[in-house]
Design a binder for these strands. Sequence first.
DNA 1: CTGTTAGCGCATTCAA
DNA 2: TTGAATGCGCTAACAG
Lengths: 336, 336
Amino acid sequence: MQRHLTTIIDIARQLGISKSTVSRALTDHPNVNAKTRQRVLELAEQLDYQRNQLAISLLTNQTRTIGILVPEFISYFFPRVIISAQQVLTKAGYNVVICQSGESYEMEVSNAHTLLANRVDGLLVSHTKETRNFDHLRTFQRKSIPVVFFNRVCEDMNVPNVTVDDYRGAFVAVEHLIQSGRRRIAHLAGPDSLPNTRNRLNGYRDALLHYGLPIEPELIISYDLTLEKANIYINHLLNLPQPPDALFTINDPTAIEVLKVCRSRGLHVPNELAIVGFSNDPISELVEPGLTTVVQPVDDLGREAARLLLNAMEGSATEMPERVVLPTQLIVRGSS
Amino acid sequence: MQRHLTTIIDIARQLGISKSTVSRALTDHPNVNAKTRQRVLELAEQLDYQRNQLAISLLTNQTRTIGILVPEFISYFFPRVIISAQQVLTKAGYNVVICQSGESYEMEVSNAHTLLANRVDGLLVSHTKETRNFDHLRTFQRKSIPVVFFNRVCEDMNVPNVTVDDYRGAFVAVEHLIQSGRRRIAHLAGPDSLPNTRNRLNGYRDALLHYGLPIEPELIISYDLTLEKANIYINHLLNLPQPPDALFTINDPTAIEVLKVCRSRGLHVPNELAIVGFSNDPISELVEPGLTTVVQPVDDLGREAARLLLNAMEGSATEMPERVVLPTQLIVRGSS
DNA sequence: CTGTTAGCGCATTCAA
DNA sequence: TTGAATGCGCTAACAG
């Protein structure tokens, strides 16, 4: 499939001038005759000329494109964050390309290579649940391409990051359950490769400790975030000799799954089991009963991540990378 | 921010050989001494060398990258389609970059320019609801960059496309309402810039005609797909002297909004108002009552779109662009 | 104000 | 098997 796209040389030839002049006319360079510029612009328009960004990037060594790498975008969370980040970046004159890895480490590595090969000027990342080795991201660092983590962060890498206050969110959620009279509060936690998971787990633990409740290992289950596994573990918990009277889940989809299981078992929510989720997925206010959950400020998250990246790219390479933690908030609905 | 990335020249110099040889070693060219190749590969690894895709693309005039342009990805629909398309494209050795336009025509044009400037080898598009002028996409065509439309297609452009059978889906949905005894069936339609909207409207109309029911203009309302407007029109319909006994909506989020309005007005669903949505958003099975809706085969949609694009790129430029229409299916739940 | 020249990083002829 | 030379499309430095 050979195709010829109009180049400045085509324009120069047809106008009988040099390609430098064409280039200058096209880039609003001051030193060019108004009339000449006019002619160039008209012919460019007519020939449907488009600057070849590839050539410019090769020359300037910057693409004005930034890459966003996310583990998935089925859940509402990542799309929202991306959109708000994109708004900031677009306003700053950057293009945004998005890659999603389907929670696969291998795919993430491949995406990282693509982004690197295409020489993005900066990278916004939230890694997959499988990612334990971060060499593919350190490569960016080594090449001085700014990287900013959001949501799922690698604490070992010395780069800026933005997270929400998972610890506090979890603490308050569990506190709420305790204060409404629950005593056997279970926690469906995510894989412990994810710091958010660990922070939420700590918040859960500390809330129990703070109120003098025992921490029962049998009530804490880590799983891989798939709904199939969630279903199995929920039933497992409910089949315990002493089943929990409340369940705090790592995210809203999981909490919804709990709701479904309760429905099918004829368990009343919240009387027989109280449920609290995490993230305030739009779905959580539509189910019956409404789901109590912890709000993550998705828009702020995207905005902050973009801001940190812009800072990093626009040079002010501070010695201490900035780390932003955004507040979370509990929304109480019918499920608790 | 000046940074130097390792090039083949660095490798060549350090090894005291020419860059051509390095290039050959790196590209698995047959004519290169095994030992030399070995040394090159080792040093490349050690220096953390990455091929500069920009330079290669400039040279070969192809990027092995394809662009996906969608109007939004908040709803579950587009992410799903993208993921399945991406699977096919990745397998075929292409990289995928995604741009979303937030339903803004202006943003879509800008994204199209970005993708063009970055010389994608092919484009998968679903346009915004505002798009009426397709010049920004015709540009790709003029430059022989294959374009494939999916879901929201421009019928005037002579390119392959994939859609679902909106007409049939709507027909069957309305038929179902009629057969379950409804007689005043309203339709909340989308903007008529979108062919899907028109097709669904036609399906709705023809079903009424087919069963000898009158078409009441006051029961058909086009709107802009925002939930705020949806809310206004839903209330408007329910306030009619003769309110409808069923409501068929352009999509599931709108149907959910209907459900919410009914809840707040104390209207029983489906007894006082039956509701049927479109697209089988995961949310539709979680609400109470479950939402009757028309399934769109999202995975097939993405796969087919990718297949058509690969065909178009891999040369077989057939005279008649292929147009695929995928079947839809009604799922009956509690809301009807 | 305009033309000439160089070079970004690479693959690919053509010679050796 | 290897090296030298060419050019992809463009901007920028330099010279008129």
